[in-house]
Design a protein around this nucleic acid. Structure first.
Length: 268
DNA sequence: CTAATCACCTGAAGGC
DNA sequence: TGCCTTCAGGTGATTA
């Protein structure tokens, strides 16, 4: 499940590999994966740079944007030749360099959008978790008065963009906060700890090229290595690395949620 | 504003 | 073996 660190890893690679290249042709193996705003064509569009906001990958073209969201199982792979394994291959871009930019997506949830209105695509995306506009005071103010759980708050991309199920569980563990704590009841001190924890967890994961649980791959087809450094995610039933208590896994708002019942305080 | 449910999809894993 | 159910979870729409 690509979240901010995985997407950031992909964007850095794409920036290095693809800047200056030109889209020559597109082949849709699954039409639902791709959508162009009416009148726009990807043909002969040059890549002038790459950006990321939250979990969105943004190819800057000369006057347009090619925006990719991998959702759960999307992968972007760059190859010199078409690979033999084309199962789950949904979109093929042929580049001027002769390379192929490939979009694989087992579950077909991912989306590629060609648009001249970047803001419209990103309208439900709040400040990016690693950018300056996501500040400690912003987080404090934004959580004020909220009765929902801190996990639900962080899952909502309008509040902060880039976090998903894995890194939220990890950040809350590091901040010693129970995921079901009420967002609006968290003290200033605890809020600061949460803020720092989010940054630590995300930057640590970027340094390890992301977390490969099942589907995430880098653009060369490689794996991340952060899955070997997780505190709680996927560790239900195993001992807490701090206190030895059994890590619990519960269902919270429809999502698997992992925490240490001893280290993480529930604030209600 | 918040919460719950569904829809979109496919495959793995567990129960019987 | 094989059928059925549940789980995996990001986002958007809908309904309460």
């Amino acid at each position: 499940m690509p979240e901010l660190p995985e997407v950031e890893t992909i964007v850095r690679e794409l920036r290095q590999k693809m800047s200056g290249d030109v889209f020559k042709d597109i082949e849709l193996r699954w039409p639902g994966s791709y959508q162009a705003v009416s009148g726009l064509s990807i043909k002969n569009r040059k890549i002038t740079g790459l950006d990321r906001k939250g979990k969105y990958i943004i190819f800057n073209l000369q006057n347009e944007f090619l925006i990719v969201h991998l959702r759960m199982t999307g992968q972007i792979i760059v190859k010199k030749k078409l690979p033999a394994d084309q199962k789950y291959l949904r979109v093929i871009f042929r580049m001027q360099s002769g390379r192929y930019l490939l979009f694989y997506d087992l579950r077909k949830f991912g989306r590629i959008i060609l648009t001249d209105d970047r803001q419209n695509v990103l309208k439900n995306t709040g400040p990016d978790a690693l950018q300056a506009d996501f500040s400690m005071s912003y987080l404090l103010k934004r959580m004020q008065g909220k009765t929902l759980s801190v996990k639900s708050f962080l899952m909502d991309q309008r509040n902060v963009a880039g976090l998903g199920n894995i890194y939220i569980d990890e950040s809350l563990y590091l901040a010693r906060l129970h995921p079901e704590s009420k967002a609006g009841k968290i003290s200033r001190r605890q809020n600061e700890r949460l803020y720092e924890s989010i940054k630590m967890v995300l930057n640590g994961a970027i340094g390890r090229m992301g977390t490969t649980i099942s589907d995430y791959k880098t653009t060369g087809g490689g794996f991340g290595e952060n899955q070997n450094h997780l505190y709680v995610y996927g560790r239900g039933g195993e001992p807490c690395i701090t206190c030895g208590s059994v890590i619990r896994k519960i269902k919270h708002n429809g999502r698997g949620t992992h925490f240490c019942p001893r280290c993480q305080k529930k604030i209600c």
